[in-house]
Write a protein that binds this DNA or RNA. Structure first.
Length: 480
RNA sequence: CGGGGUGUAGCGCAGUUGGUAGCGCACCGCGUUUGGGACGCGGGGGUCCGCGGUUCGAGUCCGCGCACCCCGACCA
């Protein structure tokens, strides 16, 4: 099918990424610059992510809804920092049905404004609160430099939008959804993110506070993989979202929003992949196991395919997502490479030897070669595969955690800081001043990623840049 | 938007002095193969990015566009 080796991950990470996304059939380029076609294999992965997230959203009391893609341009202009943040990257529709429009329509870059419009109509009383709605949709931001999954003109995501009676409730929601993202990342995607508050300059346009999860990619750059915002009363005031409290007094709502996008697929690729291709975390993998029949002639084929059929039926029965690769005209070796490229966690080989011995051969994707192979009795194949999937899921998380921690360090001084961020994350004291933040960015290309709530109240240190007393410790890294 | 690069078959490329558009992979057919990317034979597939110019003749020379990719300023 495809050619030989991928570009080396260590020699050219960028080339490796671009090639693996295409070759593994996750996505393709769209005809318009910067657009992405998500292919069925990539979309299935996204569907699995959606299910894992949606379950968590429902468990925390949220419901889904659909909102318009077109937003009156004036809506965007109502919240000052929101306008400022999004104006440069808006796609604006000025003609509809062949006629110039009275008022241009913006293709939603995010839905805070139109949510504000709706919530102001819906919310009258404290009894209407909280409102907990999530949207699954796509949004458009006119980016200059694009890259499949990481930054495209259109991307798919979910955006949660909630309204509350008090600041405390909004803050609780904001942190709860941050926790949901952390849990999803760790336990579904096997990605151990750092998490915390964004600096002023990095926060969402219109938010009081932004929290994010930040993952370390295989090239030791950071990727913001999910965000949760406490919007304070900014949008409530801009869109007049008010309610009568129990004392019959008008109050502005407190709102939040939170989102996680197809960008997260990029995070999985760049966290787990190796020079053979993708490595899918078992819990989200489109195919958790691929079954490859091996035979030399028609007689062997008949008996081998019998075993294949019964093994696959048993696995499916147990809820394991299994794919049988019974394509003619490809050698087993070819299929091994084909499915390794696509990151299927477990490979099951069934050949004449296995039929004779009532066994199957298992190979785990995260441990290549002989070391990752084992022979198990056919009768225990289901539990063996199940155990293996669980083990792979754990190993991926452990491997990623070790990688993250061994490439994160605390700088002694600014010179040391520069060394660290050239090839990793630095966890450093920062005075909170934008001047220092900008200077660091200009001098090292590293930006502040997030400020964990690390319980450092009793402790303080000196800003890594200016030496002033500081109360916050911040992760700095080059980022996507 | 600045810098660099590339546009020739689905992908990767070659194309000499301007003279019949080619190679590898992929694809289709047949046969032999099949436990780590098989092989043979036969086939299909082209607006040579576009427009204009020079010429008997342009993939090739000249001009003007356009697109995409990579690197820098902004972002999930």
């Amino acid at each position: 099918m495809s050619k030989k080796k991928l570009p080396s991950r260590t020699e050219d990470f960028n080339d490796w990424y671009n090639t693996v996304v295409i070759r593994a059939d996750l996505a393709d380029y769209g005809p318009a610059r910067g657009t992405m076609i998500v292919k069925p294999y990539g979309w299935t992965l996204w569907e699995n992510m959606q299910q894992a997230l949606d379950r968590r959203f429902k468990d925390t009391g949220h419901v889904n809804a659909g909102f318009p893609m077109f937003i009156p341009k004036s809506f965007i202009d109502r919240e000052a920092s929101h306008v400022e943040g999004f104006s440069p990257e808006l796609a604006v529709v000025t003609i509809g049905g062949g006629k110039q429009l009275e008022e241009p329509l913006v293709v939603r870059p995010t839905s805070e404004t139109i949510i504000g419009y709706a919530y102001s109509k819906w919310i009258k009383s404290y009894r209407d609160l909280p409102v907990l709605i999530n949207l699954w949709n796509s949004v458009v931001r006119w980016e200059l430099r694009t890259k499949l999954f990481l930054r495209t003109l259109e991307f798919w995501w979910q955006e949660g939008h909630t309204a509350h009676a008090t600041y405390e409730q909004a803050q609780e929601e904001t942190l709860q959804m941050l926790e949901v993202y952390i849990d999803f990342a760790r336990n579904e995607a096997a990605i151990p993110p750092f998490f915390g508050r964004k600096s002023n300059s990095e926060k969402f346009p219109g938010a009081d506070v932004t929290y994010s999860i930040e993952a370390m990619m295989g090239d030791k750059k950071a990727l913001q993989a999910g965000t949760s915002h406490n919007l304070g009363q900014n949008f409530a005031k801009a869109f007049d979202i008010q309610y009568l409290d129990p004392n019959n007094e008008m109050q502005y709502c407190w709102t939040t929003s939170w989102g996680l996008s197809t960008r997260f697929i990029g995070a999985m690729i760049m966290t787990h992949g190796d020079d053979q291709g993708l490595i899918m975390p078992p819990r989200l993998a489109p195919h958790q196991a691929v079954l490859i029949p091996i035979y030399k002639d028609e007689d062997q084929k008949a008996t081998v395919m019998d075993s294949v059929a019964s093994v696959s039926a048993e696995l499916i029965e147990q809820g394991i997502r299994v794919k049988v690769d019974d394509r003619e005209g490809f050698t087993p070796g070819h299929k091994f490479n084909y499915w390794e490229l696509r990151g299927v966690p477990v490979r099951i080989e069934i050949g004449p030897k296995d039929v004779a011995n009532q066994s199957v051969a298992l190979a785990r994707r995260d441990v290549l070669g002989r070391e990752g192979k084992s022979i198990v009795p056919q009768e225990s194949v289901t539990s063996a595969v199940n155990d293996l999937l669980i083990d792979i899921q754990h190993s991926l998380l452990e491997r990623a955690t070790n990688f993250r921690d061994s490439n994160t360090s605390e700088p002694r001084d600014y010179a040391h800081f520069k060394e660290i961020v050239a090839d990793g994350f630095a966890f450093a004291w920062w005075c909170g001043g934008e001047t220092c933040e900008t200077a660091i960015k200009n001098e090292t290309k590293a930006t502040s990623r997030c400020i964990p709530d690390s319980g450092l109240e009793d402790e303080d240190g000196k800003c890594i840049y200016c030496g002033e007393m500081s109360t916050d410790k911040v992760y700095f890294a080059r980022s996507y």
